[in-house]
Simulated assay, not measured.
Amino acid sequence: MQVLIIEDEAPAAEKLQKQLLECDSSITILDVLNSVESSVEWLRVNKHPDLILLDIHLADGLCFDIFKQVKVKSPVIFCTAYDQYALKAFELNSIDYLLKPVQAQKLEKSLEKMKDVQQQRSPVVEGDLLNNLMSMIGRQESNYKSRFMVRIGNRIQAVKAGDIAYFYSRNKLTLLVTKDGQSFPVDYSLDDLIQLLDPAVFFHVNRSLIIHIDAAREIHPYFKGRLKLVLHPPLDEEVVVSSQRTPLFKDWLDQ
Rank of each mutant, 00 (worst) to 15 (best):
residue 159 V to R: 02
residue 173 L to Y: 12
residue 183 S to K: 13
residue 161 A to L: 00
residue 161 A to T: 11
residue 139 R to D: 11
residue 166 Y to H: 11
residue 135 S to K: 07
residue 175 L to R: 10
residue 149 M to C: 08
residue 147 R to S: 14
residue 155 R to N: 07
residue 144 Y to V: 05
residue 173 L to G: 04
residue 166 Y to C: 10
residue 137 I to A: 00
residue 138 G to T: 01
residue 187 D to Q: 15
residue 161 A to H: 04
residue 172 K to I: 04
residue 150 V to Y: 03
residue 165 A to K: 01
residue 153 G to Q: 03
residue 175 L to N: 11
residue 183 S to M: 11
residue 167 F to E: 01
residue 194 I to F: 02
residue 193 L to H: 03
residue 138 G to C: 02
residue 161 A to W: 08
residue 157 Q to G: 05
residue 153 G to E: 00
residue 174 T to H: 05
residue 149 M to G: 11
residue 149 M to P: 09
residue 174 T to S: 08
residue 188 Y to W: 12
residue 183 S to N: 08
residue 164 I to K: 07
residue 181 G to Q: 07
residue 177 V to G: 06
residue 151 R to P: 11
residue 177 V to N: 08
residue 187 D to F: 09
residue 154 N to H: 05
residue 194 I to H: 00
residue 185 P to Q: 05
residue 185 P to R: 06
residue 180 D to T: 13
residue 141 E to C: 04
residue 175 L to M: 14
residue 171 N to Q: 15
residue 159 V to M: 01
residue 171 N to W: 13
residue 157 Q to V: 11
residue 142 S to L: 09
residue 158 A to L: 10
residue 175 L to K: 12
residue 163 D to M: 02
residue 172 K to S: 12
residue 147 R to H: 15
residue 192 D to K: 15
residue 170 R to K: 15
residue 149 M to H: 07
residue 152 I to H: 10
residue 165 A to R: 01
residue 170 R to D: 10
residue 160 K to G: 13
residue 143 N to G: 09
residue 161 A to Y: 01
residue 168 Y to R: 01
residue 183 S to I: 07
residue 183 S to D: 05
residue 196 L to M: 15
residue 172 K to L: 13
residue 165 A to L: 06
residue 179 K to A: 14
residue 147 R to C: 12
